[in-house]
Design a protein around this nucleic acid. Structure first.
Lengths: 197, 197
DNA sequence: GTCTATATGAAGATAGAC
DNA sequence: GTCTATCTTCATATAGAC
């Protein structure tokens, strides 16, 4: 089976209106029940057409998954660009985290699916630009450190932001509040006990 | 389709040797590729029998998933019991976190699947004892606070521990080191700026 | 406890008309 | 761009022999 690739520059692919209808409906279902459990029939039903009509827009189910992931990843890349171009100096870390937190909170419904759905995980694991983006993000957060504590700390913030946005404990917080708390706590956590006593 | 229930007291169900072969092989496959993407044929192949033999041990695929989740959740419940019975006082939080971290690190291969696989998520969302365990865990970590910051903080530690153990940045750390770092950082994060300035 | 064989349905996917 | 109709493959699941 030929695997449709993600575009190397994210968010560059253009989709027709009919394709967008498919992708948005599909993403919605992926979020609700996972990629594997979502059939083309369900996607077709959701937009009120037949399977064949869906297949006219995308050759395979995999292509729909790719399009959905690509669309969301495009936002991440834009966020990264915004942060990097605005501040090349010390405020860069704050700017970067702020963008990531904004995005995660703004799209909290999606985050779990995009980060953890088995199908998407495999897709992204083979996707160079995504891996490189992640490496870049982590290296900024590591600030040159490589020891076990620093790496654990970064792994924890990354997971904390991605995981907390869908946590039941904060489900009732509005976006602005959650963003503020997440950003503040993330920054404090990263500076926790820094610079050797 | 009739849904097999998780036992209300976790880890109580007993399984035959043949059943254990099925469950452990299945869990392995669930971890590698997700629950939905794992067929009974794959499970049967993994243990070298036919599908019919597997069906003789468990009536449905769902029952296999339940058994696997139950087995792993039993460990969590034991860990909770150990922590609670040892320390009814102030050290309780440390003891509890320590148990959770131990378990998460010790079974890091499984953690993502158990926490995030869409099929298992739905299963656990309807599982009273699990929800009650989680509520209890969170209420201990909240220590009476209910404000946005406290809740965000707890949501973050919970996600941080669960997510960090499978993070590529710490993949090469041995269990002992990762446990120590995670526990230390979690405790410090929870105390971060406590007690109003 | 395991097998062979089979029922039944739904999945992904395509052909060709409108 | 959407339809009806159809193909193929594989999924869950069962019956009954050894």
């Amino acid at each position: 089976m030929p695997e449709p690739d993600l575009a190397s520059r994210l968010g560059s692919t253009r989709y027709s209106a009919a394709q967008m209808r498919v992708v948005t409906a599909a993403l919605d279902l992926f979020v609700q029940q996972g990629v594997s459990a979502t059939s083309l029939q369900m996607i077709a039903d959701a937009i009120g057409v037949t399977k064949a009509a869906v297949y006219h827009q995308f050759k395979t189910k995999e292509a729909i998954v790719v399009a959905a992931v690509e669309l969301e990843l495009g936002r991440l890349e834009s966020a990264l660009d915004a942060a990097e171009s605005a501040q090349p100096g010390p405020g860069a870390l704050e700017a970067l985290l702020s963008q990531v937190v904004d995005l995660a909170v703004g799209r909290r419904r999606m985050v779990n699916t995009l980060l953890y759905d088995p199908v998407i995980v495999r897709l992204l694991a083979e996707h160079r630009p995504f891996m490189e983006f992640m490496d870049h993000l982590f290296s900024v957060l590591l600030r040159g450190r490589e020891d076990a504590e620093a790496r654990t700390r970064v792994a924890m913030v990354a997971s904390a932001i991605g995981g907390a946005v869908t946590h039941p404990l904060v489900a009732d917080l509005d976006d602005a509040t959650l963003k503020a708390e997440l950003l503040d706590l993330s920054l404090r956590f990263l500076d926790l006990g820094d610079g050797e006593p």
